[in-house]
Each structure stands twice: as structure tokens, then as C-alpha cells.
């Protein structure tokens, strides 16, 4: 075994031992999930709402034999699984490895199925089946479906046919059949965007750029606001000149285009700054998950401080 591999193996073993020690042999522990039993439907079922360790401690202190707040083994396993997935994805930073590949494969599989299930229950059932055959949907999954929205609409049969044609793409033969619904999707997208971009991103943007170059506020000339407006108008015009390739960028046109490039560079610099800001926040929340939810090293929201249960607790 290579020396580097031995080192990493040793580090992993030490890390795992530290986690085991922290979770089993320290008073504070780590990585446990708790639930609160909430009766629903007049007590016919019990729903397990997430609860904090602090609430559990508070409940135990108030009534040691209570059963409302409980440790949840399945959710604790889930939490450790989430931590494993997080670390597995992070491990890619060091180099491609089987842990990352497994996590990536799970990500692809779960995501695709997740979208499918959402599309099925949120759109296909209520908006397609429910429009063609509302009685079936009412008897099966949506007993609450009623009123004028629940009237059968035969025109939706056309969508059903188009849907089947679209799914035909999965069949080994007759791929051209899917072109018809695809053509509809492309056509409607083009129709929607043509107007929206022309109106919102072209006409109104021109309107937004027609700004007063001498701002008079309460009878007083405002030089600062006037300068800002002037810079916006000139900036937009310079950039547009730069985008014109119908004539050569020489002389006055070249100078204007050059100014346009500078405005664009400032724009890209701002975009870079904002992008960095965004990416850091995305990393921060994952590290917060590891430190707070899993390792219990920090507790910024006081979730593990024994809570005095307000109304609703231990009722």
C-alpha cells in the first residue's frame, strides 16, 4: 500500500473513532434526531413532527415518563446518511473516488424520480386526469376535488393524445410521432417569448433608459442624480454601439465602443463579485449542517438547550 494511502486510511480511522467517541461517550453526544407525536384526524393517526433535542430534554424534565417527544432511530440514520452524502460529495475535491461516484449516482437517480413523482401528483393527476375523468380522481386520490374546476373538460383529451405521442419517444420505433407535441412545445415557447422579450426586455428597457439628464428635485438641481442618469444613458448607448458589428469600430465609433467595453467589464466584475458571494453562502449552509445538525459542535439557534415547552407541549 502506498504511503499516502496509509496516511489517509489512518486519518479516516481516527476520524471515525472520534465520531464514535463523541456520539457514545460524551455527555452532549451528537447526530440524534427527535420527533414529536402529533395526533391527526381525531386521533386516528399519529404524525411525527420534527422536534429538537432541547424540546425532548424539556419534556423529560417536566414529565420523565412522557411519550410525546421521542428519539427517532430512522431519522437519526437519515441524518447520518445525509452527513455521509455531504462528505462523499466533498471528497471529490480531493479527487474522484468510489464514494463520490456512488453519491453522484444516487443524486441522479433520486432527482429524476423526484421530478417525475412531483409532475405526476401535482400536474398530471389534477390537471390532466382530473380534467378528463374527475370522478375517478375524486374517488381515488383527490376526494376534495369539487366545484366548477372539477367539471369534465373533453378538450383535454387532445393533451392526453399529445402526451402519449410525446412519450412515444421512449419507444424503439416511430420517434417522429413525438415531433407533434414537441412542435407544440416549441411553438408555444416561441410565441410566449417573442412577446415577453419584445415588451419587457426591449421596449420597456428603452423606456427605462429615457431618464431626465438634469434632475430638478423641489426646484433644486440635483447634480449627483443627474450624473447617475447621464452615466446610465451614456453607458447603455456605448455598450449598444459596441454590439453593432455592421460598421468598423474606428474613430469616434471605436472610442465609443471602447467605453462600452469598459462599462461591460465593470458589469462582469460586479457579476463575478456577486457570484462569489452566492457560492460562499451555498458552502456555508453545508458546513453549518455538519457542525450544527450532525456534530452538535455549535448551536446558534439554541435547539439543544433544554426548552421550557410553550402551549402545545405535553398537553
Amino acid at each position: 500500500m502506498r504511503r499516502e494511502n496509509v496516511f489517509w486510511m489512518a486519518l479516516l480511522v481516527i476520524g471515525a473513532a472520534a465520531l464514535l467517541w463523541r456520539s457514545a461517550f460524551t455527555t452532549e453526544g451528537m447526530g440524534r434526531e427527535y420527533v414529536r407525536a402529533v395526533p391527526v384526524a381525531n386521533g386516528r393517526w399519529t404524525q411525527s413532527d420534527p422536534a429538537t433535542y432541547g424540546e425532548y430534554q424539556g419534556a423529560e424534565a417536566a414529565l420523565p415518563a412522557q411519550t410525546e417527544y421521542q428519539f427517532s432511530l430512522p431519522r437519526t440514520i437519515g441524518l447520518w446518511l445525509a452527513a455521509f452524502f455531504t462528505l462523499a460529495i466533498f471528497s471529490f475535491l480531493f479527487g474522484d473516488n468510489p464514494f463520490y461516484k456512488v453519491a453522484e449516482a444516487v443524486l441522479v437517480g433520486v432527482s429524476a424520480a423526484y421530478w417525475m413523482v412531483i409532475g405526476f401528483w401535482d400536474v398530471i393527476v389534477p390537471n390532466l386526469v382530473g380534467k378528463i375523468w374527475p370522478a375517478l380522481v375524486r374517488a381515488w386520490a383527490m376526494p376534495g376535488l369539487s366545484g366548477p374546476e372539477a367539471e369534465p373538460s373533453p378538450s383535454y383529451i387532445v393533451v392526453l393524445v399529445l402526451s402519449v405521442m410525446l412519450l412515444w419517444r421512449l419507444a424503439p420505433k416511430g420517434g417522429w410521432i413525438a415531433r407533434w407535441p414537441l412542435a407544440f412545445i416549441i411553438g408555444t415557447t416561441a410565441g410566449l417569448r417573442l412577446i415577453a422579450f419584445l415588451h419587457g426586455d426591449f421596449l420597456v428597457q428603452i423606456r427605462n433608459t429615457i431618464l431626465p439628464l438634469a434632475v430638478i428635485d423641489g426646484g433644486v438641481f440635483d447634480p449627483w442624480l443627474s450624473l447617475q442618469n447621464l452615466l446610465i444613458v451614456v453607458g447603455v448607448l456605448c455598450c449598444l454601439v459596441y454590439f453593432f458589428f455592421s460598421f468598423e469600430h474606428q474613430g469616434a465609433v471605436g472610442a465609443t465602443a471602447k467605453a462600452g467595453i469598459w462599462v461591460l467589464m465593470i458589469t462582469f466584475g460586479a457579476a463575478f463579485g456577486y457570484t462569489v458571494m452566492g457560492r460562499i453562502a451555498l458552502l456555508a449552509i453545508r458546513l453549518e449542517f455538519l457542525l450544527d445538525d450532525w456534530l452538535w459542535l455549535i448551536d446558534p439557534t439554541g435547539r439543544r438547550v433544554a426548552a421550557l415547552l410553550a402551549g402545545g407541549g405535553l398537553g
Binding site: W115, M116, V123, I124, L167
Partner: peptide, 21 residues
Amino acid sequence: LAAIWFDILAAVAFILGGGNL
């Protein structure tokens, strides 16, 4: 109506995507 049909077909596209995968 056209936009609603489009919206429903977009959900069918999720199924198509999953099926392709």
C-alpha cells in the same frame, strides 16, 4: 388554453426525462 396544454406537456416531459434516464 394553449399555455395550459403547454404546462401539462411540461409535466409529461418529466416522465420522458426519467424514462430516458
